[in-house]
Every structure is written in C-alpha cells, then in structure tokens.
C-alpha cells in the first residue's frame, strides 16, 4: 500500500469514542442503541467479520429508569457453580451493590451470543455518575442522543412560569392550604 492509501485506510477504520448520558433513560431501550455503536452497525463500511465497532462511554448509569415495577420485580440469576449456589437478586439490590451492572447486563443481553460479544463489551465503559477519568474523556468526540426526553420536575419551573401557566380553576379565597414540610 502506498503511504496515501495507508493513511486513507487508517482514516476510514478509525475507532471513534462516543458518549451516552443514561440519566432517566430506560436501560433496555438504550441498550439497543448502544449495542449498534459497539457492533459498528452505524457505519456503512460495516462487515460482520470486520471489527468496525466503536467505543461507548456511558455516564450517569446510577440514574437509569426501569419501566413500571421492574425495580421490584426483575431478578438477576447467578450460580456460583457449586451446589446450592443459585441466587436471584432483585434489580434494586443489584443497583445498590453496583450501579453499572443493570445497564451492563442489559447491553450484554441485547447482543447476539457469538464470539464478538466479549470484544464489544470490552469497548464499553460505564460510569455511575459524570466522573469519568480524564484519559477516557479526552478520547470522546461524539455524543449519542437519548431515546427519551427527561421531563421537567415541578420544582424546576420558575415562579414566573408557574404564574403564567393557564388555570382552569382556582382555590376560593378563604381556602386554607396546608404546607407539607
């Protein structure tokens, strides 16, 4: 290969580092998106045996949101290999022990069970909050969009906005509002 062609090859097959903010996102929805970037399915040069996958850095995995009552109902099974070593852990328990695991497992289980899976998982970096080591954050050049919008909390609205908001009814003047402390 000539020097020019070699440089072109490097450019085309560069491994890009993406960032994903998992705050208030469904880990299973996010897994589908992130898994695509890890596999290289976001590139038109994708090939199943060509390793075109990218790195993904996930932040705020502590603040993921499972749908419905999954925090109480979803269980993660583990067997140590020894007799009587089966254990079922609730999602909330697992999240307390390691806040990155729920998302990591979601991504792992969304992938096909072939030999590429471990390589792809090695390129995934999950952090429970926004504290990412500087060496890794330096590599990041792209941000993946969230699947869901984070709704605005009531206390995030300013007083002007609250006053401006159209009212259907209003409390009568002598109504006593008890403040909850």
């Amino acid at each position: 290969m000539s020097i020019y062609k070699r440089a072109q090859q490097w450019t085309t097959f560069t491994r890009v580092w993406h960032l994903f903010d998992a705050k208030w996102q469904n880990p299973f929805e996010s897994a589908k998106i992130i898994q695509k970037y890890l596999a290289g399915l976001h590139k038109p040069i994708y090939g199943p045996s060509a390793d075109t996958g990218d790195h993904v850095v996930v932040i705020n995995s502590k603040e993921i949101a499972l749908p419905g009552d999954e925090w109480q109902k979803r269980v993660y099974f583990h067997h140590t290999g020894f007799a009587g070593g089966a254990s079922w852990t609730f999602a909330w328990e697992l999240h307390e022990k390691d806040p990155t695991l729920v998302l990591k497992k979601a991504i792992y289980n969304s992938m096909k069970g072939n030999l590429y899976r471990h390589t792809k998982m090695e390129r995934l970096h999950i952090y429970p909050d926004a504290n990412v080591p500087q060496e890794i954050l330096e590599n990041v050049t792209n941000q993946i969009r969230r699947p869901r919008l984070i709704p605005k909390r009531l206390d995030e609205y300013s007083e002007e906005e609250v006053e401006k908001f159209p009212k259907l009814i209003d409390y009568p003047e002598d109504y006593v509002i008890q403040k909850i402390k």
Binding site: L41, H42, K43, P44, I45, Y46, G47, P48
Partner: peptide, 13 residues
C-alpha cells in the same frame, strides 16, 4: 442482508 445493514447505517448518518 449486509447491504441492508450498511444502507440503514448510511441513512441514519
């Protein structure tokens, strides 16, 4: 299938 995957990626870009 490969072409479909590649074109999906290219369009999503």
């Amino acid at each position: 299938a490969l072409w479909d995957a590649r074109l999906t990626a290219a369009c999503e870009e």
